[in-house]
Amino acid sequence: MSVINDHDPVTEIYISSAMPGDFFALLKPRVMSLVVFTALVGMMAAPGEIDPVLGVIAILCIAIGAGASGALNMWYDADIDAVMSRTKSRPIPSGAISKSEALGFGLILSAFSVAILGLAVNWFAAGLLAFTIFFYAVIYSMWLKRATPQNIVIGGAAGAFPPMIGWAVVTGGVSLESVILFAIIFIWTPPHFWALALFKSDDYKLAEIPMLPIVAGEASTKKQILAYSILLAPLGVAPWLLGFASIAYGVIATVFGAAFLWFAWRVYKMDEADRKMLPAKKMFGFSILYLFVLYAALLVESLLPKLLNLIGIA
């Protein structure tokens, strides 16, 4: 039982009622699962080998680091999360966790994930992870998000680093291949988020976040979505063109890239009066599938020879 001085009003003392699940929600588990997946692809696609135990620990560190940056983002953005329908049930605005708890949690996990990755694997990968956390929490959340409609263009780099970190875990460095893996997610992020911002623009307006549809208008956003999609479609095929993926990957990337363009074209042609914005919703859904399929194809291609080798076929 705790004991306090009579002069301290009991009402001023905060006693947490947060459950472990609330802290887990601070890590943005859905974003974390995407980070785990893309980092795993980077790790598997990289030339060279890593001990499986260290590989699992590296993925865990990258996941926790990504989760920590999510917690720091929720700490900083608690005020705007409270007014947006998509985010108002998050642990801080819902009252489950205090801001200081989230800050402490995020900082401790950041330090632990970077230190363990550095000690167990290599300090280059750990440095990249530290930079990713800094980029998401400080550059994106604290600076760009509320300052410019280009917030998610530049901030998208934070989500694009995990495959590069996975690659660095195995090779200890960066190469053209890992830059391509980074670039695919980097160029994919703006059309993905702007499709969401189109049909959630009321939310962003309420929170006074300068998303492109609010600042530049829907017509300009649709043009930008199309422009980035035109860049993305050939970039998705680049792993095959540069020779680090097979023609099977090339065919998949071409088909899905063409479909991405078609969805972007449908958004571009979407009527201004259409408030249901079905094409934008479909594009948002397809963009997630697109990234998953491309990275899954790369994962299968990198795992297949290893599996065949393991069972003695190749």
């Binding site: 039982m1 009579d6 009622s17 947060a18 472990p20």
Partner: peptide, 21 residues
């Protein structure tokens, strides 16, 4: 000196957090 009486929810959540840690 006045003791703080934790509510049932606070005790339960603290126990859960301790187990998680």
């Amino acid at each position: 000196m006045k003791p703080i009486e934790l509510t049932e929810a606070q005790v339960k959540s603290r126990r859960s957090r301790n187990i998680a840690i």
